[in-house]
Simulated scan of single mutants.
Amino acid sequence: MKNKNILITGGLGFIGSHIANKLIEENNITIIDNLSTGKITYLNNPNHENLTLIKKNLKSIDLNDDLRGIDYVFHLAAMVSVPISIEDPISCNFENVSTTVNLLDACVKNDVEKIVFSSSAAVYGDNRNIPLKETELPSPTSPYGASKACCELYLKSFHESYGLNYTALRYFNVFGPKQDKNSPYAAVIPNFVNMILENKQPVIYGDGEQTRDFVYVGDVANANIKACESDFNGIVNIAGGSQISINQLYGIVKKTLRTDIEPKYLPERIGDIKHSQADICNLDYINLKIDNDKFQENLIKTINWFKQIK
């Protein structure tokens, strides 16, 4: 992708900053981010001549002005926490659904070529038809999952009604450098690493035998770019296509950090699912392959990044 005008909502965040760093040398990048979780330091060059940074919330700006002349949109800005969505479903709906509809409307009015939407495996809920295919009916168990499923329907409807091209990427468990370790709702890997580095017991909710399908953030950034360049309109699972239990994951982290600290087990959280694994056949539609054999290598790379910033 070269010489394009690109908008990234949430472009200072964990995934958005990786996309921006990959594209900024050969494209004009506009980032909209309210810095609620993102950081300017996540960009390799925050002063790059190809960068326009709008430090505002999506709901407080005139999207028609900001999308004028934009070719592609990567939409990552959202409330991303299942627990927070359960605590405040009204805000979740507004931040995830209403702002997305406003963005889609602005995309249509400004003749945007394509939007790539960051969805989530949370739309599947506790579906036992593993590996999960994109054709499964959504069955979310949290307001967060419901909001992502709703946005996917809006994307399809805008494609059918107005011809807006889109790809919705259903992320499974993303990990990698720049993931927020300080959030009280931090993802499992940064939570484990951060607690161990502070010589504290990490927490595992439930018995630890729940399984997840992890995918490295570099692969997720590549998936966004590949989806944008493709002609595919629809939904694609973004995952490694395999399962690992939380107990197994902790064992790898523990071994890598050379610690004897054992985790503390607490009751399962409302909205959490037991098992998750993606069918990744649709990756072919966006011409992407994910090498899951590099999982441990990427995990060690991630752990070392957290050690460096400690």
Rank of each mutant, 00 (worst) to 15 (best):
T52W: 01
T52H: 08
I54N: 05
K55S: 13
K56C: 07
N57S: 14
N57R: 09
N57H: 12
L58V: 02
K59N: 08
I61H: 09
L63D: 06
L63M: 12
L63I: 11
N64I: 10
D65H: 13
D66R: 14
G69H: 04
I70E: 00
D71V: 05
Y72R: 04
V73R: 12
V73F: 12
F74W: 09
F74E: 02
F74G: 03
H75E: 01
A77H: 08
A77I: 04
A78G: 05
A78M: 03
M79D: 07
V80M: 11
S81Q: 10
V82F: 04
V82I: 13
P83H: 00
I84S: 11
I84A: 13
I84R: 13
E87F: 11
E87W: 09
D88N: 15
P89N: 03
I90M: 12
I90K: 13
I90R: 10
S91D: 10
S91T: 14
C92E: 09
C92Y: 06
N93S: 13
N93F: 15
N93C: 12
F94W: 06
F94E: 12
N96R: 08
T99H: 07
T99G: 02
N102S: 15
L104S: 03
D105M: 07
C107R: 01
C107L: 03
C107A: 09
V108D: 04
K109F: 06
N110A: 05
D111L: 13
D111S: 15
D111Y: 14
V112C: 04
E113Y: 14
K114R: 10
I115E: 00
I115P: 01
F117H: 11
F117V: 02
S118G: 13
S118H: 05
S120R: 01
A121D: 11
A121S: 15
A121T: 05
A122Q: 11
Y124M: 10
Y124L: 09
Y124F: 15
D126L: 04
N127Y: 02
R128V: 12
R128G: 05
N129I: 11
I130T: 07
P131N: 03
L132D: 00
L132V: 06
E136N: 14
L137M: 14
L137W: 11
P138A: 03
S139E: 08
S139V: 06
P140H: 05
P140M: 04
P140W: 05
S142T: 14
S142R: 08
P143A: 02
Y144V: 02
A146V: 07
A146I: 09
S147Q: 06
K148I: 01
A149V: 04
A149T: 03
C150Y: 07
C150P: 01
C150A: 14
E152Q: 10
E152F: 12
Y154S: 04
L155I: 02
K156C: 02
K156A: 08
F158W: 02
F158M: 00
F158G: 01
S161C: 11
Y162A: 01
N165Y: 11
N165C: 12
N165T: 06
N165S: 15
Y166Q: 05
Y166G: 07
Y166W: 12
Y166C: 05
T167K: 12
T167M: 09
A168E: 01
L169Q: 02
L169C: 06
L169P: 00
